[in-house]
Each structure stands twice: as structure tokens, then as C-alpha cells.
């Protein structure tokens, strides 16, 4: 599967994503500058983490108006895969491609640490793997997921909540919630199931040298789906 990794001014996890996809998984990867509109035939678009436009105004608020985002929106609307990681998730929410918003962490602190995620929906193209609990790091100041009550109801009805913060045994308890996210939500998909947004960083745990490779499960699931 050919991946496209979008680079905004202030992206800082783009090279990590490119390294994992290209060197660990052996996939062709294109770097897509945010001023471009051509997705260059990429089948899966990755919006990486970072601080696009310095997080000015709100996280992702300015990046969502970059020219490439029109093409990303069309790609998503056509049912093709898109994954937004951390700042990428924030951009997808600002763009209205995913519902809800990411607000300031409850603690007001930037949190950088490994967390556990429970896989709440194993039927998405991003989560077709055996493991039900993943160890993946987070690194964000604004990862506190919020959505209004009726939006939350729709997320649940459509099984759009994909990852919840949990303890190491897979229990999504309140004390396993690092940032105050509503119902421990760490990642969601759109209604159609082809766009994933998640705050944790799978690209930071896709090699044993970095302490774990649970993140690979997600990338491999996308690749397998593309090969079908």
C-alpha cells in the first residue's frame, strides 16, 4: 500500500511515520507538503503529530485550511483510508471530518508517557488484529476529547469509539485516564469507518529498539486491508 504523509509547518512526527512505513514495513511513502493538492496516488493518507502552525488559535485550526486538506477531505469522502495521529487527530476534528474536539488536558500539563489502550472495536480496517490491549505512548497538551451528549450517543450507536485509555489489564477505569477525555476516549473513527483519529503515537512504538511494537498492529491492519 502506498502511503502519503502530510507535512505541515510545525509537524514533528512526519519522519517517524515515514521511517516506520518505509523502512520497517517496506511500503512506498510520499511526503506531501501541505501547500500541494495532489495526493500523488497515495492510497492511505497519514496526518502526523506535531504543532502545526504553532498550535496558534486552537490546535489544528489553521492547518485544516491548508490546500492539501481539501484533497484529504475528498479522499476521506470517497471512503479511502486516512489516519490522524495526535495533531493529525486534532486537525481532522477541526476540519469536521471527525466529530468532537480536543481540548486542554485536565491537568493543564503536557503529558508524555506510555499508556495502555483497550481496542473497543476490532472490526475496523485499522484494528483487525488479535491484541485487545496495546501499549502506546502519548505526548500532548491538548488531548482531552470532548463531544456533546447527542454526539456521544451516536458514537456509541455506530461503534465509532475505537480506543479507550485503560490500565494494563484492559480496564478503562477513571484512574487510567491521563487527560480527562470523555469516557476515556483515545481514538475514534468516522461513521463510514475509513478515517481514524487517535491521540497516542503508534509510530513511536513500532520497533523493539524503541521499547515496543504494538503500534505496528495498526499499520499492518491498514496494509492488509489494502491488499484484500
Amino acid at each position: 500500500m502506498k502511503f502519503g504523509v502530510v507535512i505541515f509547518p510545525g509537524s514533528n512526527c512526519d519522519q517517524d511515520c515515514i521511517h516506520v512505513l518505509r523502512n520497517v514495513l517496506g511500503c512506498p511513502v510520499k511526503e506531501l507538503w501541505h501547500k500541494e493538492r495532489d495526493l500523488q496516488g497515495c492510497e492511505c493518507i497519514v496526518l502526523p503529530g506535531g504543532f502545526s502552525y504553532g498550535d496558534y488559535l486552537r490546535t489544528g485550526a489553521i492547518a485544516r485550511f491548508s490546500p492539501i486538506m481539501e484533497s484529504v477531505a475528498s479522499h476521506a469522502a470517497a471512503g479511502r483510508p486516512v489516519i490522524g495521529i495526535c495533531n493529525g487527530f486534532q486537525i481532522l476534528c477541526e476540519a469536521g471530518i471527525l466529530p468532537g474536539a480536543l481540548i486542554r488536558n485536565q491537568s493543564l500539563r503536557f503529558i508524555c508517557k506510555p499508556v495502555h489502550l483497550s481496542v473497543e472495536n476490532s472490526r475496523t480496517i485499522f484494528t483487525r488484529f488479535e491484541k485487545k490491549t496495546l501499549a502506546i505512548p502519548i505526548a500532548h497538551g491538548e488531548g482531552n476529547y470532548f463531544i456533546h451528549a447527542d454526539g456521544l450517543k451516536r458514537l456509541k450507536e455506530n461503534v465509532q469509539i475505537v480506543f479507550r485509555y485503560c490500565d494494563k489489564n484492559g480496564k478503562a477505569a477513571a484512574d487510567a485516564n491521563p487527560n480527562g477525555s470523555l469516557e476515556n476516549i483515545a481514538g475514534i473513527i468516522n461513521e463510514r469507518g475509513n478515517v481514524l483519529g487517535m491521540m497516542p503515537h503508534p509510530e513511536r512504538c513500532s520497533e523493539l529498539a524503541l521499547g515496543g511494537e504494538d503500534g505496528l498492529n495498526i499499520f499492518k491492519s491498514i496494509i492488509q486491508d489494502g491488499a484484500r
Binding site: I103, R104, N105, Q106, S107, L108, N144, F146, H148, G180
Partner: peptide
């Protein structure tokens, strides 16, 4: 300002 039903951790602090 944040809507009333959105938690405002800065406000609490």
C-alpha cells in the same frame, strides 16, 4: 469562551 458544558481546566485552576 468555552460552552458551559465543556470542562474548563484553566478556569478551575
Amino acid at each position: 469562551k468555552l460552552k458551559r458544558d465543556v470542562s474548563d481546566p484553566q478556569g478551575f485552576a
